[in-house]
Design a protein around this nucleic acid. Structure first.
Length: 228
DNA sequence: GCAAAGATTTGCT
DNA sequence: GCAAATCTTTGCC
């Protein structure tokens, strides 16, 4: 019999974003319930902390897009990047202080076939006018992906779990939520390494070099690191 | 009001 | 290894 998961502690998210980021490694993200439920283990995250962090979306202050980051901890901050992909963050620290942890990669635990179907829906939905042979190529590519590659990037996590801006502001610490964070006693402690955040070349030092990316070394789902 | 760039992924050279 | 795809948000005129 399976051990019942418990919701991720909001009080813990409320204090220190770097500690929260580290603790989120190995935690689970869950979507839905019953036979179509999807569950994954978080294996890569990044911390974005406050208006002073010039890599953080809050660096321009309060805006319509980043409003949720200024709210209470435990909420989902979901935004659209590059006009096509969504990114999921977990809001941290007390209300009024904008900080969050970006979920960069997840290892499928349950519902991999559901995630694959969601990836396909996302890919085809993005380009509605794709030619028939392009559709076939895309379908073949996604159908042959190893399970570990289904959510191995921030945009892919959202595609696999069908996360979009409808989920912006959702409470991830509520066990009744359709999208939520969970801890399971069945999970062993994972090794964690740190490094600079990815894709923030626009940020000046010291922010660009801050080792605020946390990941499980050698994990296949987390290994999608740009070559540069 | 308009131009520019972005916490990415994919496909082609 | 590089550039395109795509659209919201930001920043300047």
């Amino acid at each position: 019999m399976a051990i019942a998961p418990r919701p991720f502690s909001r009080e813990f998210l409320a204090t220190d974003t770097l500690a929260a980021a580290r603790a989120l490694i190995g935690a689970r993200i869950a979507r839905g319930s019953g036979p179509s439920a999807c569950v994954g283990r978080i294996v890569e995250v990044e911390a974005y902390i406050g208006q002073e962090d010039l890599a953080c979306h809050a660096r321009f202050g309060y805006t319509k897009r980043n409003a949720v980051m200024f709210g209470p901890p435990g909420a989902a901050y979901v935004y659209l990047v590059y006009g096509m992909y969504h990114c999921l963050n977990v809001v941290t620290e007390a209300a009024g202080r904008p900080a969050a942890v970006l979920i960069r990669a997840v290892e499928p635990v349950l519902g991999a076939s559901e995630m694959r179907a969601a990836r396909l829906r996302a890919a085809l939905g993005r380009s509605p006018r794709m030619e028939a042979d392009a559709v076939a190529r895309t379908r073949r590519r996604i159908e042959t992906l190893p399970a570990a590659a289904l959510a191995s990037g921030p945009g892919l996590v959202c595609a696999a779990f069908s996360i979009d801006r409808h989920d912006d502001g959702r409470d991830l610490c509520d066990e009744g939520s359709d999208l939520r964070l969970e801890l399971s006693d069945a999970d062993e402690q994972l090794a964690v390494e740190t490094g600079p955040r990815i894709g923030i070349d626009y940020a000046p030092e010291p922010w660009r070099g801050r080792p605020w990316r946390f990941y499980v070394p050698g994990n296949r789902a987390a290994s999608g690191i740009p070559a540069k």
